[in-house]
Computed example of a mutant assay.
Amino acid sequence: MNRRILIVDDDREIAGLIEIYLKNEGYDTATAHDGEEALAKLDSEPYDLVVLDIMMPRMDGLEACRRIRRNREIPILMVSAKAEDMDKIFGLMTGADDYMIKPFNPLELLARVKSLLRRSYQYNRTSSDEPDDGVLEIGPLRVDKRSHHVEADGKPIRLTSTEFGILYLLAASPGRVFSAEEIFQQVWKEKYFESNNTVMVHISKLRDKLEQETGDKLISTVWGVGYKIDV
């Protein structure tokens, strides 16, 4: 079955171009032109990914992203004409998995979409043929790769596929320090660029969620080196 992608942008020309690029790659698509319309469509039909503009009428992309994250783990690729680092950080902090600046290269857009879908599939799939070796227990956490399920003392923790990927990577090698470059390359499967603060923002969100449920951030920063989970 083809993956379904919701494109949300008040600029109908841009939304139409993105739709053409994605359809040419075999994806099923639908469009919405503000946050309220996007939420209504997500409530009525299942989608595998959202391409979400920030600046829109009625409800902007940041508020739409917050509301989507209340009860959905669907990958979100945020797009915006705002190029400042703080705009990108704010977008990622609201729950987006990735952030692109307009105007963008169509090939880069497709690469980002494929990467997000691949990550989501990798961490959400289940198979009765797969050996039960994808479960990690570290401290109060139980991390199940097969079901993309995380518990703290039996209580579930909702994570996006990106957050889950980072947590599983660190939890699989407790005590080992991973640099931001290593984390990015292993979770995003893309080349890392200097000054890329994407990993830092996702680590911050992940820590907040873990601390909320366990009372402990669990992930330590080794300044100038990277991040780790201690045994």
Results as ranks from 00 to 15, higher is better:
136 L>I: 15
155 K>Q: 15
120 S>G: 02
218 L>G: 07
68 I>E: 05
54 I>L: 06
37 E>Y: 00
173 S>H: 11
73 E>I: 13
87 D>I: 09
158 R>C: 14
217 K>H: 10
129 D>P: 01
94 T>G: 00
228 K>G: 02
214 T>S: 06
67 R>P: 02
220 S>Q: 14
16 G>W: 05
104 F>V: 01
60 D>Q: 01
216 D>F: 00
81 A>V: 06
121 Y>C: 03
74 I>W: 03
124 N>C: 05
112 R>P: 02
121 Y>Q: 14
61 G>N: 07
189 K>L: 08
110 L>T: 07
200 M>W: 15
187 V>Q: 04
117 L>P: 02
118 R>Q: 06
197 N>H: 09
70 R>Y: 00
215 G>T: 05
175 G>E: 06
112 R>F: 03
72 R>S: 09
38 A>Y: 06
116 L>V: 05
139 G>W: 04
92 L>C: 10
110 L>F: 02
58 R>H: 10
12 R>W: 11
45 E>W: 05
191 K>Q: 13
57 P>V: 12
95 G>H: 01
57 P>M: 14
9 D>H: 06
178 F>Y: 15
193 F>A: 12
95 G>W: 14
66 R>I: 07
23 K>C: 12
192 Y>R: 02
67 R>F: 00
126 T>N: 06
158 R>P: 01
217 K>M: 14
181 E>G: 03
180 A>L: 04
5 I>F: 03
175 G>S: 08
208 D>N: 13
28 D>C: 03
146 R>G: 15
91 G>T: 03
68 I>W: 00
181 E>A: 15
178 F>D: 10
